[in-house]
Design a binder for these strands. Structure first.
Lengths: 162, 162
DNA sequence: CTCATGTGGTTGAACACTCAACCGGAACCT
DNA sequence: AGGTTCCGGTTGAGTGTTCAACCACATGAG
């Protein structure tokens, strides 16, 4: 019955380290943003994507797709961002079912204020600690794993996130 | 004022892919466990750590430390695990403030049932998709990043997680 | 011994995410 | 047209996490 292919001891070590790093890094990023800019990481990313969109606005679905988030999650998130005055909802002119999320000036300002600290954190936590070869390797590894899980999100080489 | 060292376009690409992978992989693992074994990933890890501890039991603090979790979070988690009959709380004999979490037989059984599926998912999502060199590189990269964030958790080479 | 301080652990409120259910408008049929 | 089906988006309940406050016990100084 047990035809499971278990991991070698070495692989277990890698996995353990990897998973721990995953958790610690996520928490690290989240904390920094929450502390310095009072927003969770996910919300920051929403603002980033919006800020790069034409007219700083996007249909909810597109936004959800770009951020790999569920509709429901995005709806809740935008509701909160709207309450904070960083995003507005407008109705879509071409499809009366749809909504369009628009980044407000206050939202853009909040993003501009948050970005330097965030980038600095990313740099200190990741890029400054790796050799150029490791950075390249990390990109390839991430792409390979991502490709196995969700091939859709793999390729688009646009520069949307900071 | 803007002396921020921004990321190069190439680094941005790596970061974007990495972050996307991070989110997708976490969600992937979580979904698999939730679907097949009705437990979130964090709870699975708690059970794993407990199962490797002497007498399948640990002080709450030690458990929190080993899993890199806050006391509060662990307390809530154990409360839920206790309600499911997978863990029991006993009072600590040497320190009357303390509690000890003990893995029950039912908890061990649940873990044993969940492990194969989980390991298979890990293998398929990560190890089967990487070359041996990439696996080694991933270990080194993870350790380097982790070391920058939380040097305590870096070295202990024990094989606690599957 | 007594009091201050520190520590292990819990609690409750606020917040984020998931899931399933739902509503209204679009698209597609004949 | 009229009906079915699909799709965009929201809602509410349930779950997990965080944060700050808190209790009970331990510890150390006088």
């Amino acid at each position: 019955m047990d035809d499971t292919r278990w991991l070698s001891a070495a692989d277990q070590d890698v996995w353990r380290t990897f998973v721990t790093m995953l958790g610690a890094l996520g928490e690290h990023m989240d904390r920094q943003l929450q502390r310095d800019s009072s927003m969770p990481y996910t919300y920051y990313e929403i603002l980033v994507v919006l800020s790069h969109a034409p007219c700083r606005s996007l249909r909810m679905s597109e936004l959800a797709g770009l951020r790999g988030s569920s509709r429901s999650r995005l709806s809740h998130a935008v509701a909160r961002l709207e309450a904070q005055g960083w995003v507005e909802r407008r109705e879509c002119p071409t499809d009366k079912r749809g909504s369009v999320a628009v980044l407000t000036d206050a939202g853009f300002a909040a993003l501009a204020a948050a970005a330097p600290g965030h980038v600095t954190t990313v740099r200190e936590a990741v890029f400054d600690r790796l050799t150029p070869e490791q950075v390249t390797a990390l990109g390839a590894i991430s792409a390979a794993i991502l490709d196995g899980i969700d091939p859709d999100k793999t390729l688009p080489g646009c520069r949307e996130l900071r």
